[in-house]
Simulated assay, not measured.
Amino acid sequence: MKRIRFALLLSAFLIGAASAGAGEDKLALLAPPVALKPQALVEGDLLLLGDLFDNLDETKAKKPVAYAPKPGVRSTLDANWLYAMAQSQGVAWRPASFYDRIVVERAGQTVGREIIENALLSALAPYGIAADSAVELANRSVSLVIPVEARPTVAVRALAYDERSRRFTATLETPASSPNALMAKVSGRVVTQVGIPVLARTIAQNEPISADDLKLVQISADAVRADTLTEPSQIVGKAPRRMMKVGQMVSKQDIQRPIMVPKNSNVTMIVRTSAMTLTAQGRANEDGSDGDVIRVTNAQSKSVVEATVIGQGMVTVRPQGARLVN
């Protein structure tokens, strides 16, 4: 009787175990297969399994498998590396072809040029540089990319400055005092800056320049030509001899008084006396601005007279020249 009871209990246990195993197999069949992600964007120092594959359980997805690239850098993991790693981590994945791969990119932030220059100016202050000075880096494309969660601070190390040539070399450390700081060697020079008015928009030929068309920018004194106009009052009211682009500095040769009577244009000729006012049509023989004396040909008599420009397409002729107007 005891043997029969033991046999029944053993049968029940085996049936239960078989049913449980069948249930687990069924769940495994229902779970979506592990799939390689098309790309990975990470922020931390470590690359996790979940960064590379979809459909992993939560515990396995958080398992680190490699160091992430440097901030702002991309790297490509090929099929061989991915398959070997999956096997070592117990991940049920195999490449569909030799071309399977994933591009891993580490997010980063670029330290602003202003932060770098201010750090250098602060470090150079003990050398007695002027308050209106600026620094020009020899490598203007220098780029410092740090983790997104880091503070964009810069420390200047190993600074060397030649007061005669005003040139310097230094090592930049960012984030400042961080154990994983990025180090970059830079060189450059200290320059004196001056405020120069430049065009705030593109100005067409002969278009009068207003105060709103100018903006003041700080420029290295070495970049300013001797004929560059440094005061807005020297520019406002004048007009370009040819089209000028936004951001352009203005020289004496670039501008003139606006042309009110273009050469070969039709003009109205006016003669005023105490008794009357006479008008006639003529053609300008040369360009003329307000107040200029130019030569004008009477359209009817073909006589050439000297006339003073008084407005757009308008000139006056002295009374003693009236006979030439008629």
Rank of each mutant, 00 (worst) to 15 (best):
R242T: 10
M260G: 03
E231W: 14
S233Y: 00
R242I: 14
I255W: 04
M244Q: 07
M249H: 02
S251E: 13
S233I: 09
K245Y: 11
V236Q: 05
R241W: 10
A221W: 10
M249S: 14
L229P: 02
V217S: 15
K238D: 00
P262R: 08
V267A: 13
R242Y: 11
K252N: 13
S251V: 10
P240V: 00
M260K: 08
V267K: 07
M243V: 05
P258I: 15
A226Q: 07
V246F: 02
K245S: 10
V250T: 11
I235V: 06
V224C: 08
M244I: 03
V267I: 07
M243E: 13
R225E: 00
N264V: 12
V250Q: 04
I235K: 06
V217Y: 11
K238H: 06
D227I: 07
V217T: 15
Q253N: 14
G247E: 12
M243K: 03
S265A: 08
P232T: 03
G247V: 12
R225M: 02
Q218A: 09
P258Q: 04
R257P: 05
S265Y: 09
Q256E: 11
V250H: 08
L229R: 09
M260V: 01
A239M: 01
V224R: 04
V261W: 01
P232H: 00
M260D: 00
K252R: 15
A239V: 02
T230A: 11
T228S: 07
S265K: 04
D227H: 04
I255K: 06
L229Q: 06
R241N: 09
R257I: 12
Q234A: 15
E231F: 14
R257T: 09
I259Y: 07
M243R: 12
